[in-house]
């Protein structure tokens, strides 16, 4: 194809998206669109399955049977969400195994928040309340994104996700209505998860490389800073209700804007964690690699068994 032809196709393509038409996997798409989507969807999928680890930690230690069942169901949902998203990504011609390779080699990124440790039971509450809360803000607009398989996966994810934040908040509520030790535990969790949750919504607009293009493709509907403000504005009253203090002395309601002004985010920490120097980066990847490597003989056996069964079927047929 000549450059001119490609340019023409690109214009038609962009016009389709502008008209809110969905792009399906086998449609012609600019190479950059394909690559950007593989990157974003796989990052999202990786975040789901790495995210299983810090919470999975507490399944065996959940304080009641009811909580144990809820946490199991939640972590299971994350596996499901990872699966939907990997599947969406696979429609673009990349296999789940290739995507795993990228994760295992450190080439692919995932949400940095999961590189923080879960130290107490209250962290299960804080993650549900804050991390899932921030994730929902990020994800709801994606139900309308331009790439059909991603949008459909996100509809399913968002539908299932709604119980996650509620179960997290309920954990916090119970702690805050409990003993002093429980309340302290809840405050400590908020202290540790607050800033990473704000960072989770992405670097400030000035430093965000992908925003403009992503907006056009409806991979993003609002800027990182707008999303962050939305998150803070909805979360502060919830913290008040719990009787917890947000660990930011500069946090103050701005009467003019109706929004909360907040203190400076430590972006050095953010970039350190992104670069692999967070408290648990190594453990998380090691756990994923171990699961994959230790499972190789199982996956191989299943394939070998399937081949044997097929052979038998053929023999019987003959």
């Amino acid at each position: 194809m000549s450059n001119e032809q490609i340019k023409n196709l690109e214009e038609i393509f962009e016009a389709r998206i502008a008209r809110d038409e969905k792009i399906e996997a086998k449609d012609w798409m600019p190479e950059k669109y394909r690559k950007t989507h593989i990157r974003q969807i796989s990052q999202h999928a990786h975040s789901e399955i790495v995210g299983m680890l810090p919470e999975g930690n507490w399944i065996s230690r959940a304080p009641s049977l009811r909580r144990k069942a809820a946490l199991l169901a939640k972590v299971q949902d994350e596996a499901g969400h990872g699966l939907y998203l990997y599947s969406a990504c696979e429609t673009l011609g990349v296999s789940r195994e290739e995507l795993y390779q990228q994760l295992h080699s450190g080439k692919a990124k995932y949400s940095s928040i999961f590189n923080y440790p879960t130290l107490t039971w209250a962290d299960m509450g804080a993650i549900g309340w804050l991390v899932d809360g921030a994730a929902i803000i990020n994800q709801v607009p994606l139900c309308n994104t331009s790439f059909g398989p991603y949008a459909r996966a996100m509809v399913r994810v968002c539908k299932e996700e709604s119980f996650h934040q509620r179960q997290g908040f309920e954990i916090m509520l119970k702690l805050c209505n409990g003993s002093k030790e429980q309340k302290d535990m809840a405050q400590d969790a908020l202290n540790r998860w607050w800033w990473p949750s704000l960072m989770m919504l992405g670097p400030t607009d000035a430093e965000s490389v992908h925003t403009e293009q992503s907006m056009k493709w409806k991979l993003k509907r609002k800027s990182n800073d707008d999303l962050r403000q939305q998150f803070i504005d909805q979360t502060v009253p919830q913290a008040d209700l719990l009787g917890l203090t947000i660990p930011d002395p500069d946090l103050k309601l701005n009467k003019q804007t109706g929004s909360y002004d907040f203190g400076a985010i430590d972006w050095d920490e953010f970039w350190q964690v992104v670069k692999g120097h967070g408290p648990c980066n190594k453990e998380r990847i090691r756990a994923r690699v171990a699961a994959w490597d230790n499972g190789a003989w199982v996956r191989d056996a299943a394939m070998a068994h399937a081949a044997k069964k097929d052979e038998q079927k053929i023999k019987i047929a003959i």
Binding site: M52, L53, G56, Y86, A287, A290, A291, N294, V298
Partner: peptide, 9 residues
Amino acid sequence: CGHGPSLET
């Protein structure tokens, strides 16, 4: 949970 041979399992 999270350590099995595949997401499906």
